[in-house]
Simulated assay, not measured.
Amino acid sequence: MLAGLTVGFTVGATTIAHADFRVCNATQELVGVSIGYRARTGWITEGWWHVEPTKCKTLIEGPLASRYYYLYAEDALRGGRWDGPVNMCVAEREFKITGVNDCYARGFQKSGFREYDTGNQQSWMVQLIDEAQSSDTNTNTQ
């Protein structure tokens, strides 16, 4: 994780009735986001969603089908990252990749994703913030 950016979380219910996985960008910079999850066909990574400052994007629409989701994000201007220890494949441009092994051999890059345990909730939100701000949040809704 680069200096200046961090991801933390608190969990709480919201009154929004949407069932989806959303990422909100509470920074002042454009952020590129990718997500990983386990599907019936195996591991999938998808990206890039461009989330403008103070905006949110829905990465998965509808009720969540998995308990665990994995997120990797980059600050487009400063190069900071929100990452974690779970390696998955990514590409430079828009992508949907099946499998997390042999990323380089298959022509992809490898990035460390952070795991989010949604506790089988129907909805989940991750809020990305700068380290200088007080807290980042993940919010689940039922």
Rank of each mutant, 00 (worst) to 15 (best):
G4V: 06
G4Q: 10
T6F: 06
V7Y: 11
G8E: 09
F9G: 01
G12A: 08
A13T: 01
T15V: 02
I16N: 14
I16S: 11
I16K: 10
I16M: 07
I16P: 02
A17H: 08
H18I: 08
A19M: 03
V23D: 10
A26T: 02
Q28E: 08
E29K: 04
V31A: 00
G32M: 04
V33Y: 01
V33A: 01
S34Q: 01
G36I: 07
G36D: 10
Y37I: 00
R38K: 10
A39V: 01
A39M: 04
T41I: 12
I44Q: 14
E46M: 13
G47K: 08
H50E: 15
H50Q: 13
T54P: 02
K57Q: 09
L59S: 02
E61W: 06
G62R: 04
G62D: 12
G62V: 14
G62I: 14
P63Q: 15
L64S: 05
L64F: 05
A65Y: 10
A65V: 08
Y68C: 06
Y70N: 07
L71F: 15
L71R: 00
L71Y: 08
L71K: 00
A73R: 10
A73C: 14
D75Y: 02
D75G: 08
A76E: 03
A76R: 01
G79M: 03
G80A: 03
G80L: 03
G80H: 04
G80K: 01
W82N: 04
W82H: 05
W82R: 02
W82Y: 08
G84C: 10
P85V: 15
V86S: 07
V86Y: 12
V86N: 06
N87E: 14
C89A: 08
V90R: 04
V90P: 00
E92A: 01
R93N: 12
E94Q: 09
I97H: 03
V100N: 14
N101L: 15
D102R: 12
C103G: 07
G107Y: 12
K110Q: 14
F113G: 06
F113S: 09
F113T: 08
R114N: 02
E115A: 12
E115G: 07
Y116R: 02
D117H: 09
D117Y: 10
T118E: 07
Q122M: 13
S123A: 13
S123M: 10
S123Q: 12
S123K: 05
M125L: 11
Q127K: 03
